[in-house]
Every structure is written in structure tokens, then in C-alpha cells.
């Protein structure tokens, strides 16, 4: 039973083993759910074509394997998935994996920047608000947090578009790059960055308020704990107290939330990507639902499940690093 591996690797291995049944369950569940919805790929295709006769539709169904019982379809799909074959997208006329990989980068970039901005700013603002609790600074920060918290992301996006693109003309309305620009090198980077400012802001402002509120409460709680009093009795100054004794302990619940929220951010990106016409996974998911592109949709769900599992694993690692009481085993 004793493996000659470092404990962290054993832990990682166990997490991988644990993740497999989770992902399989998610895939089976969504497959069945999607089959419950009326209409399939053929209906959508035929609808696009403007109609076809019944024999053609039946032939098309047989070709795609849609005439089989659901269990057979499920079994076939899962068997293919086991070899990481996501199938063919009949809408994009490409393998699903190609379509997904094309879009993944944009979404990951959007999520990573939004979350890091939301987390960093939320933590810093929350800590500041807690240290000056009930002062004007605290009130301003808390009220702003509440406003962003209460504003739906689509509304925030549209308002920003109206202000910065339409009225002021500072930022592009949507897309990931200027289509006719053909920029290269740094110009390309700057161009993409300009396109991402508004979507990132729209996505991060909402999550920022979550972190802000949690961090403020957490700092207030930790600041009253015995060991902070001990540190004061040692003669430590306020800055030192904050950095060494309060922040590290106050961060723990916020990190937990970070892991939990990653999946909701994926959901939020559907709205934001659609509004800003960013070619990412969220927009793809939306279109796939409309066009009944089952294979692509299942591929997106698989990818998202994978991302969430990986992020949760990383959060646990981070948590263990931050909290010395937790041993990964």
C-alpha cells in the first residue's frame, strides 16, 4: 500500500480518480436532459434549409444515428467520449474538438482576467473597508459594492457600451479584434486588450462585490480574535497586524468562495460573450443550444466540467498552502 510517491502526487492521483465518476455522471445527466428538449439537430438543419420531404428527414436521422433508442445513442456517445472523441459538429462542419479549442482561449482569458481583477480588488477594498469600519471610506466602498452587486451583468454591459463606445467612442463595441485591422505583434495584443476591457469589467464588477463583502466581514471577524490581541500585546503595529496576523487568516473563506464561483463565472460569461460578440465558449454554447448542435454542446459541457474540477483541485491546493492546519491526505 506504500507507494514511493510524494504525498502531493498521491493526493492529485486520488482527486483524478474521484473526478472521473463525477464527470461521467454530468455527461449522462446532460445528455438525457438535452434529449428531453423537443427538436433535434435534423429539425434545426431542415429548418435552415427551408424544409424537406419526410423521406429525406428520415434518411438524415438514420445517418446521424438519431433514429436509435436513446440508450443506444447514449452508449455510442459515451464510448466515443472515452477515447476523447467529441464527434462532428454538423453546424460548423468541423470536428467538435477543433471548434472548442478555437474558442477556449478567449473564454479562459476573459475568465482569468475577470476573476483575478475581482479577487484582488475585492480583497484589497474589503480589507480597507474593514480597517476603517463605519467611516466614510467604508460607506463609499460598501455602497459601491452593493450597487454593482445589484446590477445585472447584461444591463451593466449595455450601459458601458452606450457610454464608452457609442457616446465617447473610446472602446470598440464588440468582437475580439478589429476585423479589418490585420494587426501583428504588440499592436495585436493592444487591440485584443482594448476589446476585452469592457467584457472584463462587466464580468468582474459583480464578482468583485462578492469578494468585497466577504473580505470585509472576514477581516472584521479575525480582527477580534485572541491571537490578534496577543500580537497587539507583543507590541506589534497596525500594519504588521494586518499583514501577518489578519489578512492571511481572513483570506481563507474568500478563497473557498473563489473556487465555488469559478463555475458561476463560466455561466456569467455566456451573457457577457453574447452581448459583446466575443468568440468564446459562452457564445458558442448559446448558439449551439439555438441550433440544436448536440455534439458541440456536450463538448462544451465536458470542457466546463473539466475546468471546474481542475479549478477546485487548484483551490484546495491553494487553501492547504494558506492554512497550515490542513494537510492534504
Amino acid at each position: 500500500m506504500k507507494l514511493p510517491l510524494p504525498p502531493i502526487l498521491i493526493y492529485a492521483l486520488r482527486r483524478v480518480v474521484q473526478a472521473v465518476p463525477v464527470i461521467i455522471l454530468i455527461m449522462i445527466g446532460t445528455f438525457l436532459l438535452l434529449k428531453l428538449a423537443p427538436g433535434d439537430t435534423v429539425d434545426a438543419l431542415v429548418g435552415d434549409m427551408g424544409g424537406a420531404d419526410a423521406a429525406f428527414i428520415a434518411r438524415l436521422r438514420a445517418e446521424y444515428g438519431l433514429d436509435q433508442p436513446i440508450w443506444v445513442q447514449l452508449w455510442r456517445y459515451m464510448a466515443k467520449l472515452a477515447t476523447f472523441d467529441f464527434g462532428w459538429s454538423f453546424v460548423y462542419e468541423q470536428p467538435v474538438s477543433t471548434v472548442l479549442l478555437d474558442r477556449l482561449g478567449t473564454t479562459l482569458m476573459l475568465m482569468a482576467t475577470s476573476l483575478s481583477i475581482a479577487f484582488t480588488a475585492g480583497v484589497v477594498l474589503g480589507a480597507i473597508a474593514a480597517r476603517r469600519v463605519y467611516s466614510a471610506t467604508d460607506n463609499i466602498i460598501s455602497i459601491l459594492g452593493l450597487v454593482f452587486y445589484a446590477t445585472p451583468s447584461f444591463f451593466l454591459s449595455l450601459m458601458m457600451m452606450y457610454l464608452f463606445s457609442v457616446k465617447l467612442g473610446w472602446l470598440p463595441v464588440g468582437g475580439i479584434k478589429t476585423i479589418a485591422g490585420f494587426y501583428t505583434g504588440w499592436d495585436h495584443v493592444i487591440d485584443v486588450a482594448k476589446h476585452l476591457i469592457m467584457p472584463t469589467a462587466a464580468l468582474s464588477l459583480i464578482y468583485l462585490s462578492f469578494y468585497l463583502r466577504l473580505m470585509r466581514a472576514s477581516v472584521l471577524e479575525v480582527a477580534d480574535l485572541d491571537y490578534v490581541r496577543t500580537a497587539r500585546a507583543k507590541g506589534a503595529g497596525e500594519t504588521r497586524l494586518m499583514i501577518h496576523h489578519i489578512m492571511r487568516n481572513a483570506l481563507l473563506p474568500v478563497v473557498t468562495l473563489l473556487g465555488l464561483q469559478f463555475s458561476t463565472v463560466l455561466g456569467g460569461s455566456v451573457v457577457v460573450e453574447t452581448i459583446f460578440t466575443l468568440p468564446g465558449l459562452g457564445q458558442l454554447a448559446y448558439q449551439s443550444v439555438v441550433q440544436r448542435d448536440m455534439n458541440t454542446l456536450m463538448g462544451i459541457i465536458f470542457l466546463c466540467a473539466l475546468i471546474v474540477v481542475v479549478v477546485n483541485f487548484l483551490t484546495d491546493l491553494l487553501y492547504a498552502r494558506l492554512d497550515s492546519r490542513i494537510e492534504l491526505a
Binding site: L225, D226, Y227, R229, T230, A231, R232, A233, K234, G235, A236, G237, H244, H245, R248, N249, L322, D323, S324, R325
Partner: peptide, 25 residues
């Protein structure tokens, strides 16, 4: 006061379980 605390006047608290920062050795 900060210079006095810990150097000239020291304090021992009631709860040994919570008087130490759990994240530091």
C-alpha cells in the same frame, strides 16, 4: 505604548487554543 508592550509589560492569555496565530509557526 507599543515599545512597552511585550518588552516591559507582557501578557499571558486565558485560551491557549486561540491565543496563537494558527497560520504561523
Amino acid at each position: 505604548m507599543r515599545a512597552i508592550r511585550g518588552e516591559d509589560i507582557a501578557m499571558i492569555f486565558q485560551e491557549p487554543m486561540t491565543a496563537l496565530n494558527p497560520q504561523k509557526t
